[in-house]
Design a protein around this nucleic acid. Structure first.
Lengths: 332, 332
DNA sequence: TTGTACGCGTTATCAG
DNA sequence: CTGATAACGCGTACAA
């Protein structure tokens, strides 16, 4: 007996008007008397009518969907499930999409076949796409096939992006450590190919240059165990180390464990500053002084930019960062 | 000059066959000579043809999309961005969807207007929906409007679900603490309305009953600060407390901080066992002994069930859990 | 094995 | 302000 879902045709008949008029009313377009509007709305309610998304998308040439495109290894122990950064992006985008009737689609592409995959995705994009961790060359390529894009973190200059003051943040972090009286400040960086990591490295170099501190650093690849290894490495390189700047909280978690494993105490022997201010920063012991990245706000801004069709070439929105002092740098 | 995207019509013309034949070849349906197949494939490659998703969805009545439906407060400080559970679900589903051509759509619905929102979602579902944190009544209602559903965590008996042995896990956790010689074992639970939380509570009660330990417990709402408060509360209720079972890692993070804040040491004074084995379990200090929930595997199984159209009523797949011993329960 | 023709549910462009 | 009617691009019975 399960009668099929009512179509706009059924609504039109019920309301005693044409499909066209019905469509206008439903889409809030001008050209329909209030009387007719009422009749249609009533019919919609009576029949429990809901527009068919596929038909809409086909006819209008656009679907109410924003893609979140992430380049990440699917094989590695679940990058997505381990680094809070991604879920914060998700949360931010979803909050911006709330009540807009626009849904979010998540696309994960492996770095290996990323180019091909991105090409295919670029053609399927509708309202727009937010790029996360997509290297500049690929982002450029994507942008060529699809203009409705916003990258989270800078790539090429002409590609619309929402960024954070990574450089400033890293500088502030190092300055904070220096201000604490620390003079042997090492660093654990993210992968070079990542533009955020690169910016933070620049800020760090700038700061230690100002302070006349030598550059002792290692790459932790934005992974926890990478942070552990890199921290171990820099401690070996400079046994007098008394401070560590770590380019993301996840690596900082590993770094702290590495420090403690050598018998050193945090912050007494080694003060640590992270980057992100994710849940991890308040899960560690001691809690982590870190540079707060407003990831949720940034992701929401990216989504809104797409919704408003503001993603013109060279578009840019830059968010400030903020040093959050916690126990990993404060004695007593 | 930007010529429109090629349609199947263009491909057909290029290959010198009809649309129908072209469609068959593209969809790998029987009824096409190898020779024709080759010609069509070549034409597809030459033109860079890509099927239009919307048209496909409309014609076939099904879109290659799986919905992830989550009931959560959007207002609260980003539940999604803070609890690793959600991102693990995402990671698991995405790994199952990899190479299937099926995308994932995320739908966040607020508890307040959840019923209405779910009704609307249920009609828009295509390949299927995975339900997360959807209370039994709403899940039932959803299931009535849309059969292609799998719930992550049990709800009503007839609703297809992928579950974990929460009860067994909680029992094992408490037994572990008891085995350590601890006799004053308290607990921090999740919200009653959450079925997983309820199961863990049952396992806990069962275990302390076996052990003859009194029931000292508080609700932490599955939140970090809730865990902090609840731990503080049970320590006040029983100052001789020497062990704590916490129903999720996020709350355990707060609990450990609360314990340390009172001057007690973990595990020396109070041993702690969490639940989940998320990244948080290895971020705390000391690292957290916890009950491992194979969230990624469960989410992947749920997605696969939908892909295979196996989501019949009363469908059930139950995953074992596993106690992972770390420093929060081991001296020395 | 291949082609014809119709339907999918809307939107959008015209007349009226 | 309203109503025919033509796209939109593809899947699929049915016929050849």
């Amino acid at each position: 007996m399960a009668s099929r879902r009512p179509t706009i045709e059924d609504v039109a008949r019920e309301a005693g008007v044409s499909r066209a008029t019905t469509s206008r009313v439903i889409n809030n377009l001008p050209g329909a008397s209030d009387q007719v509007r009422d009749r249609v709305h009533r019919a919609v309610a009576d029949l429990g009518y809901q527009p068919n998304a596929a038909a809409r998308a086909l006819a209008s040439g656009r679907a109410p969907v924003i893609d979140l495109v992430v380049v990440a290894h699917e094989t590695k122990p679940s990058e997505l499930g381990v680094n809070p950064y991604f879920s914060r992006v998700l949360a931010g985008m979803l909050s911006a999409l709330d009540d807009t009737g626009t849904a979010m689609r998540v696309r994960l592409v492996a770095p290996s076949d990323a180019s091909d995959a991105l090409d295919r995705l670029a053609d399927g994009v509708t309202t727009g796409a937010v790029l996360v961790n997509v290297p500049p060359p690929m982002a450029t390529r994507f942008h060529r096939r699809c203009r409705r894009v916003v990258s989270l973190g800078g790539t090429a200059a002409h590609i619309p992006a929402v960024e954070a003051e990574n450089e400033t943040g890293a500088h502030a972090a190092v300055a904070h450590l220096y201000g604490l009286g620390r003079r042997h400040i090492a660093a654990v960086h993210g992968p070079d190919r990542n533009t955020c990591a690169a910016s933070r490295r620049v800020g760090h170099l700038d700061a230690i240059h100002d302070a006349g501190v030598p550059d002792v650093a290692a790459d932790g690849g934005f992974w926890r165990d990478g942070g552990y290894r890199a921290a171990t490495q820099v401690m070996a390189a400079d046994p007098t180390l008394d401070a560590l700047f770590v380019a993301c909280d996840l690596m900082a978690v590993g770094a702290i464990q590495a420090i403690v494993a050598t018998g050193r105490r945090v912050p007494d022997d080694v003060a640590v500053v992270g980057f992100d201010d994710s849940i991890l920063a308040v899960a560690t012991n001691p809690s982590l002084t870190t540079v707060r990245l407003p990831v949720e706000d940034m992701a929401a801004a990216a989504a809104r930019t797409l919704l408003n069709d503001d993603a013109k070439p060279y578009f840019r929105q830059i968010f400030p960062v903020d040093l959050v002092r916690r126990r990993s740098t404060s004695l007593g």
